[in-house]
């Protein structure tokens, strides 16, 4: 665990909610067709699941996934499944990941994304026989890079937060 992470405080509920709102807006941006934009909601789910595993849950992941499904016009439930797997994987990995620096953690995140995106690809293949392509690798790399950025940015914010406000150990959605 880096010094930065040790010093990081428990995030406030407001920070959690606002970060997800910003990520959602980022995902609603009209990216050009086939532009490799990271799925910031997924990246954030992974980040917060590692940072505060007790306060992240499947319900948030599931509902955020549903919103992304409706927005992208894909089968309802596709992103819900992917996001839940990501959250579970990140919570399961969070203890192990604290033993690594940012680059090592990013590798873990990349591995997690690769596995989950392959599951998503298989779902797509079942749904409308879309073959799995190497595009998944591009998405994996882009999302891992996105995670590095989010990691750096949010840890800076967490470190700067005043200590006077005690963290509330509550979940976003129970």
């Amino acid at each position: 665990m880096t010094l930065r992470e040790t010093l990081a405080r428990e995030p406030s509920r407001r920070l959690l909610v606002y970060s997800f709102l910003v990520a959602l807006l980022f995902n609603l941006w009209p990216w050009p067709h086939q532009f490799p934009a990271p799925d910031l909601v997924a990246v954030l789910l992974v980040f917060w699941s590692v940072q505060t595993p007790r306060r992240m849950g499947m319900t948030v992941a599931w509902l955020l996934g549903l919103v992304m499904d409706a927005h992208q016009g894909v089968l309802l439930g596709e992103h819900a499944l992917i996001y839940c797997l990501l959250t579970y994987g990140a919570i399961a990995l969070h203890r192990r990941m604290t033993g690594f620096g940012p680059a090592g953690q990013a590798l873990h995140v990349a591995g997690l994304f690769l596995v989950v995106l392959i599951v998503g690809g298989v779902v797509n293949w079942f749904a409308d026989s879309t073959p799995l392509t190497l595009w998944i690798l591009v998405e994996t790399i882009v999302n891992a890079l996105g995670w590095l950025l989010v990691h750096r940015l949010l840890l800076t914010i967490l470190k700067r937060r005043p200590a006077s406000r005690p963290a509330r150990p509550a979940k976003i959605v129970s």
Binding site: M58, W62, L66, E78, L81, C84, V123
Partner: peptide, 12 residues
């Protein structure tokens, strides 16, 4: 996770 995955698959 199982509940979430099953419900997502059912929804699909």
């Amino acid at each position: 996770l199982v509940v979430a995955a099953v419900s997502a698959t059912l929804l699909m």
